[in-house]
Computed example of a mutant assay.
Amino acid sequence: MSMIETADVEGGVSLHQRILSDISEKILSGAWAPGHRIPFEHELSAQYNCSRMTVNKALSQLAKAGLIERRRRSGSFVRRPQSQAAVLEIHDIRVEVEALGLLYRYERVTRHKRRSDAEDRSLLEVGTAGPVLALECRHFAGQRPFAHEQRLINLTAVPEAADEEFLAIAPSPWLIGRVPWSEAEHRIRAVAADRQIAAALDIAAGAPCLVVERRTWSAEHPVTHVRFTYAAESHTLVARFRPSQG
């Protein structure tokens, strides 16, 4: 057995596993951001004093797990994590992020309490002016922005929201825990990132984005309108259904 093959096991942990662990940790911690080039096979082989076959096996496993993308002649690169969300569910973004194995963080950007204007009433589908709470928030996956949130809350339907700062908790889980929703509507569209969205998501202006707009009602009273914007390459919407029995 050669020295390199013997070195394939160190302290009970195979070099294959060490390479997997080291690279995964750098990606999941945010030390290697999406688009970062992974060292070439021959560089990793020299670094770990192992065969290129061992390195190739580890990189193939990382690619299969969706953490890296392998490009012929160019090398391997960190992929932007891609989440999947069910179209017909009201979900918590924290759950999406943690399902990717990434650390979730929430940030409230702005909070304004005001009397609704014509645009607010159109978004909430209410006929008369009333108090609303307008929020702008960001959700993070690891070190990267994951989703930008713009939300209106109808304070006539949820008066207690007027006293909530939404600094420690995101609006969605707060509302789900307090207001039993009876109906919801989703609208999904593609947009190009404007300057505000590009800055919020740390992407280039004009980059493709996926927008999910949602309205909810409780006993026929409009509760909230929210617009989530995701970088298109990081998010997939999934709908599972059965054929009509009619």
Rank of each mutant, 00 (worst) to 15 (best):
A134C: 10
H139P: 02
G127A: 12
G127Q: 13
A141H: 04
A129N: 00
Q143G: 11
L155N: 04
A134W: 11
Q150W: 03
L135C: 09
T156H: 10
F140Q: 05
V132W: 00
V158T: 11
A141M: 07
L155D: 03
Q143I: 07
G130C: 09
H148V: 06
A157V: 12
I153C: 11
T128F: 08
H148K: 10
G130S: 11
L152G: 01
E136T: 14
L135M: 11
T156I: 09
H139S: 05
R151D: 01
R144T: 13
T128H: 11
A147M: 14
R151F: 08
Q143V: 13
P145M: 06
L152S: 03
A157E: 11
N154S: 14
A141F: 02
P131K: 03
I153T: 15
A129P: 05
V126L: 05
G142Q: 08
P145S: 08
F146P: 00
C137D: 08
L152M: 05
V158G: 06
L155S: 07
L133K: 06
G130D: 02
T128C: 04
A147K: 06
A129E: 10
N154T: 14
E136D: 09
A141Q: 02
L135G: 07
R151G: 03
R144N: 13
G142A: 09
A141N: 00
A157S: 15
H148F: 13
T128V: 12
L152T: 01
E136C: 03
